[in-house]
Every structure is written in structure tokens, then in C-alpha cells.
Amino acid sequence: MDFVGPIIGILPTLWNCTSNRIAIIRHLQENLTSLRQTRNELENISKDVRSRVERAEQQYCKRTNQVEGWLESVQLKLEEVHNILQKGEREIQKKCLGSCCPRSCYSSYKLAAFSG
């Protein structure tokens, strides 16, 4: 009977881990909405920076490697976010049981965890 105590001690940890993952899957739509809003903010900042850089270039200033690298990394992140949002929308459309349960919990979890 000495093994019962450690097993009972593990149960709350397992429950917390499982319930956190279930919450992530359940909140996929909200996470995607939040990601979409953050993407829009980043796009606006990127547009502002590009405008400033173009104005500076018209005044014979040269674009630095740091600025060029930032603009390129922002573009890559925006493309990555676009792909995540598309996958997320497909996951939401694939839900079953009256749209409350994802068909693939694993892929929904990966998307929700990454987008949240």
C-alpha cells in the first residue's frame, strides 16, 4: 500500500497538465483572434518604419543592414503568422460534435499553443 501515496500525489499534477492543454484547445478561436490583432499591429509598425526609411533614403541616407534585417525578419514573421492563421481556421472548420470538439486535438493544441 506504500505505492498508493505517490500515485495519489501525482494525480493533481496530471490533472493540471491535462486541464491546461484542454483549455488551450478550447480557446483556439480566441488565441487566433489575439494573434490576428497582434499581426495587424506589427504590420502597421512595419509600414511606419518602411515609410520613414523611404523618406530618409530620399534625403540621401543609406539604409543600414540592421534596418534591412529587421524589415526582412518582420516579413518572414508575418508570413509565418499568415500560415498559422490559415491552419487555425481550417482546424476550427473541422470541429465535430456541434463545433465543440476538434477532430485532431493534437494539431489544435499545437496551433493554439503557438498562437496564444
Results as ranks from 00 to 15, higher is better:
R50W: 07
C17L: 10
I7T: 15
G69Y: 02
A112S: 10
N44Y: 11
H27N: 07
S99W: 06
L11F: 09
E72R: 10
E89F: 13
E57T: 04
V4P: 03
S108F: 06
Q37K: 12
Q29C: 08
S108T: 15
Y109L: 03
A56G: 10
C61L: 10
H82Y: 09
R39S: 07
Q59H: 09
T33R: 11
E43S: 13
E43C: 05
L11C: 02
N65L: 05
I84R: 07
D48G: 04
N65P: 03
Q93A: 12
R26E: 04
E68K: 09
Q75D: 08
G98A: 02
I22M: 04
W15Y: 13
G88F: 01
R50M: 14
I92N: 00
R90K: 12
E43T: 15
E41F: 13
A113L: 14
E54R: 00
M1K: 10
P12G: 07
F114G: 03
C61I: 06
I24R: 01
C96W: 05
A112G: 15
L76P: 00
R103Y: 14
I8K: 10
K87Q: 11
E68G: 07
V53L: 01
R39A: 15
R26P: 03
E54Y: 07
F114Y: 08
R55G: 05
V81Y: 14
L42H: 05
L111G: 03
L97Y: 09
N40Y: 09
N20Q: 14
T38H: 11
E54W: 07
G88P: 04
E89G: 05
E72T: 08
W15Q: 02
K77W: 04
L14G: 11
Q29E: 09
G5E: 15
T33H: 09
A112I: 00
L85S: 05
R36I: 08
G69R: 06
H82Q: 13
R63G: 13
F3I: 07
R39D: 03
E91Y: 01
Q37R: 14
K95M: 13
R52S: 06
S107M: 06
L71F: 03
L35V: 09
V74Q: 01
V67I: 13
L11P: 00
I92Q: 00
R36P: 02
K77S: 10
E89D: 11
Q93N: 12
C61H: 15
E80M: 12
K47F: 05
K94F: 09
E30K: 10
E41S: 14
F3G: 11
G98K: 00
Q86S: 12
R50K: 14
L42G: 00
R52K: 11
C105Y: 13
C100T: 11
G88V: 04
S46P: 01
C61A: 09
T18F: 10
E80I: 05
L28T: 03
P12C: 06
G98E: 01
E72M: 08
V53T: 12
I7H: 10
W15G: 00
A56T: 00
W15L: 08
T64G: 07
